[in-house]
Simulated assay, not measured.
Amino acid sequence: MAAKVEIYTKMFCGYCHRAKRLLDSKGVDYVEYDITMDGKKRDEMRTRAPGAMTVPQIFIDGVAVGGSDDLAALEREGKLDGLLGH
């Protein structure tokens, strides 16, 4: 079964684009929350990932995995597919 993937992003964020491109390349469906103008979603992100001040913030099955660099590291280490249920 595929994992539930959520990603908090902002407009014009290169790191967000890179993370989404990696997820897209794996055929992963994800829910995107654009926090550019949405203070409620920004607060939600900070509650879910305490100390997170940057985007993207990525969650797989409700677990914070970090940002774009963290997602890329999971892919390099061969751990991402397992988390995604592939």
Score class of each variant (00 low, 15 high):
Glu75Ser: 09
Leu80Met: 11
Thr54Val: 05
Met11Tyr: 12
Asp69Tyr: 06
Met37Arg: 12
Lys41Tyr: 11
Ala3Ile: 05
Phe59Val: 09
Asp24Phe: 14
Lys41Ile: 13
Glu77Phe: 12
Met53Trp: 06
Met37Ala: 01
Leu22Thr: 14
Ala64Ile: 07
Thr36Asp: 06
Glu77Gly: 11
Phe59Asn: 02
Val5Asp: 05
Gly14Leu: 09
Val55Thr: 14
Met37Phe: 12
Tyr33Pro: 00
Lys10Asn: 07
Leu74Gln: 05
Asp24Pro: 06
Ile7His: 00
Ala19Met: 01
Val31Arg: 06
Gly85Ile: 04
His17Tyr: 15
Arg42His: 00
Met11Trp: 11
Ser68Gln: 01
Lys20Glu: 07
Val65Trp: 04
Ala49Cys: 08
Ala73Arg: 13
Lys41Glu: 08
Ser25Asn: 12
Glu77Arg: 12
Lys26Cys: 11
Val65Thr: 00
Glu6Gly: 08
Gly39Leu: 04
Thr36Trp: 04
Ala73Lys: 14
Asp38Trp: 04
Leu84Ala: 12
Cys16Ile: 00
Met37His: 13
Asp43Gln: 13
His86Tyr: 09
Gln57Ile: 15
Gly78Glu: 09
Gly27Leu: 05
Met45Asp: 03
Gly85Cys: 06
Tyr8Asn: 07
Lys4Ala: 13
Val55Met: 03
Ala52Val: 12
Leu83Tyr: 02
Asp24Leu: 09
Asp29Val: 00
Cys16Asp: 04
Glu75Pro: 00
Phe12His: 08
Asp70Phe: 04
Asp34Ser: 11
Gly67Met: 02
Ala73Tyr: 12
Val65Asp: 01
Lys4Arg: 11
Leu71Asp: 02
Asp29Asn: 08
Pro50Met: 04
Met1Cys: 15
Pro56Ala: 05
Arg21Val: 14
Met37Pro: 08
Val65Asn: 07
Leu83Arg: 02
Val65Cys: 08
Lys10Tyr: 03
Gly39Gln: 03
Gly51Gln: 01
Lys41Cys: 11
Val28Trp: 12
Gly14His: 11
His17Ile: 10
Val28Cys: 10
Lys79His: 14
Phe59Leu: 09
Gly62Met: 02
Gly66Lys: 00
Ile7Tyr: 01
Gly14Phe: 06
Thr54Ala: 10
Asp38Tyr: 01
